[in-house]
Each structure stands twice: as C-alpha cells, then as structure tokens.
C-alpha cells in the first residue's frame, strides 16, 4: 500500500448544476476508508465551501485531495479574479456575492471562515486577476 492516496478534480466556474460533486466524491472515498465521521464532516464542509467559491467566482480550478496516514490535505488552485484584501475576505459576514447569488442562499460571508474553522492548517494565497490558492490540512489523529 502506498503512503498516501491522492485524487484530483476539475471544478468549472458557474457550473451550479455539478457544484458539490467533488466534495461528494471525496466524502464517499473517506467513508469507504472508514475515516472518523467527525473528520469526514469537517473535510466535507471545507471542500464544499471551497468548491462553491470556485463555482461562484472563478473560471475554473483544480482541487487536489491527498490523504496520508496522519492528515487529509485539500489544495484548491483557481484561475479567477483573485482576492484584493484577504483580511477583509476572511471576516465573517463579508461577501462580494451578487444579489442573484444571495437569493439562492449563497454569499452569507461564511465560506472562508467555515473553511478556516474546519481546518487544522489553513493557507490562502491570492493574486488579483490571476487566482487564488487554498491549502487546507485536517489531521486525522
């Protein structure tokens, strides 16, 4: 058996119909591997919020899921508008969602804070007009 398990997903911006698919597949994998349900819940929330941000704001992204004996890692690298002020974006309740997105129940300003809350390690890097890269690690033990 290899030391780690890895899988990549492509997420398309504006593809609301398939939004959540990568997170659902990751969840299925973790269940099959009999990971602790509490850990699965945290990974599901973190990956779903990341996926929705790509669908809402970016052109596309690659989501790389890696699992080792000690941790689960989610790396989401998008091509998109980037975030000019990360401190502001990390504030609960702050959102740049359109009124149309808000009507659908998005744009609560909880996405990035939820990701941070559910990760043991959370790194966000962004370049305006280029994209955003999120790295989230959740320890298994």
């Amino acid at each position: 058996m290899s030391a780690s398990f890895s899988r990549s997903f492509t997420i398309e911006g504006r593809d609301f119909l398939n939004a959540g698919r990568a997170s659902t597949q990751i969840k299925t994998i973790l269940k099959e591997l009999s990971v602790d349900p509490a850990i699965i819940r945290r990974v599901a929330i973190a990956s779903y919020e990341a996926e929705m941000n790509v669908v809402m704001y970016a052109t596309r992204a690659k989501l790389k899921f890696t699992m080792s004996a000690s941790a689960i890692n989610l790396e989401i690298d998008d091509e998109g508008p980037g975030i000019p002020d990360i401190t502001l974006a990390m504030q609960e309740g702050y959102s740049t969602a359109t009124s149309q997105m808000r009507e659908l129940g998005f744009g609560a300003g909880m996405g990035l804070p939820n990701m941070k809350k559910n990760s043991d390690e959370f790194v966000i890097e962004s370049a305006v007009s280029k994209g955003t890269r999120l790295t989230m690690t959740i320890y298994i033990n």
């Binding site: 959540g20 997170s23 659902t24 969840k27």
Partner: peptide
C-alpha cells in the same frame, strides 16, 4: 430554497 444546490448540502450533511 428550491434550486439544485440544496441536494448537495443534504448529501454532504
């Protein structure tokens, strides 16, 4: 909410 994304939330949770 009635749109398609509610299903993924229900599945994940």
């Amino acid at each position: 909410q009635t749109h398609v994304n509610i299903v993924a939330v229900a599945v994940l949770k």
